[in-house]
């Protein structure tokens, strides 16, 4: 009688554990990307300073900023829209070829329409790295970006 009870408890707890694990796997598997708008920036910088930092020491800057949430303030050089309707807001000094290119999260596409050339904005995005190019100008790329605020 007692043994049966123990077995029943063990089976029941195993079932609960299996259920919890299953639920966790299911949740983890279906986990959506975090909305950048809700993330706290790891660093707050200006586009010019950030570009200077990467220019001076690409390796150290990559180590510091890569995969981090950056809040970058800069002047809008260009708003680019590709043929599939994805926007990129390009920040930087118009006198320089280099810029911070922020590809806008598709869920926040409409925000790209609220900014215009020559305006200073703050964009929050995840730093995916640096593309050094002497001919085309070097770029820091932010992905899943959102417009944080306008000035």
């Amino acid at each position: 009688m007692k043994r049966k009870k123990i077995i029943r408890y063990v089976l029941l707890s195993l079932l609960v554990i299996a259920g919890a694990v299953g639920f966790y796997i299911y949740k983890e598997y279906n986990r959506a990307h975090k909305d950048t708008a809700k993330l706290k920036p790891d660093y707050t910088v200006t586009a010019t300073d950030l570009l200077k930092e990467f220019e001076n020491n690409e390796q150290a800057s990559n180590k510091k900023y890569w995969d981090k949430v950056l809040s970058v303030e800069g002047m809008v050089k260009e708003i680019a829209k590709d043929d599939r309707g994805f926007y990129a807001v390009i920040l930087g000094d118009t006198a320089s070829m280099s810029s911070v290119r922020c590809s806008i999260d598709s869920a926040h596409s409409n925000e790209a329409l609220t900014v215009s050339r020559g305006v200073t904005v703050t964009v929050k995005g995840i730093c995916s790295g640096y593309n050094a190019d002497e001919m085309l100008g070097s770029d820091i790329i932010l992905v899943r970006s959102v417009i944080d605020k306008k000035k």
Binding site: E28, Y29, N30, W66, S128, G129, V143, R144
Partner: peptide, 16 residues
Amino acid sequence: FAVLMKGFAFERALME
């Protein structure tokens, strides 16, 4: 061509 690996977007966060 030059491409940053971190810039690849996958639908599922876990997959990315």
